[in-house]
């Protein structure tokens, strides 16, 4: 119905999935958009949950940095360290995800333990 409502629904699924995967004995990491600049495709607070096999639910961008975030999240599952990573979305990639100019976002990755 509205963007806000959709976000709430997606949000629910991500955290519940994190709890569910953890309860099933998987290694789990959570990635959260903590800051954005310019036309970043997903708002602050958007989340992605990743398991040790690389399965993920949720999103932190329009799809352009998910691959890199999943790779970092698997590192976090392996070493238990939090990570804070800046991603610049190039004009070219931003154009591909439907934005006319580049954006930047900061992603916090933490283990669920």
């Amino acid at each position: 119905m509205t963007t806000m409502t959709t976000d709430v629904v997606e949000h629910d699924k991500v955290l519940e999935k994190a709890a569910e995967w953890k309860a099933a004995g998987k290694g789990v990491a959570l990635a959260t958009v903590v800051a954005t600049w310019g036309s970043s495709p997903r708002p602050v607070g958007s989340q992605l949950v990743v398991d040790d096999s690389g399965d993920f639910v949720g999103s932190v961008s329009g799809g352009c940095i998910e691959g890199a975030v999943v790779t970092e999240a698997r590192q976090t599952i392996a070493d238990g360290q939090t990570r804070l990573i800046d991603y610049g979305i190039s004009d070219e990639t931003a154009w591909q995800v439907g934005l006319a100019c580049g954006g930047k976002c900061e992603i916090f990755i933490e283990p669920v333990e």
Partner: peptide, 23 residues
């Protein structure tokens, strides 16, 4: 995030409490 914190957050959300997670 600790699993017990996550569990409490999910409970709060289900109970429609206004909660802020500070990390």
């Amino acid at each position: 995030m600790k699993t017990d914190l996550l569990a409490q957050l999910l409970l709060d959300r289900a109970a429609k409490r206004q909660v802020v997670l500070a990390t």
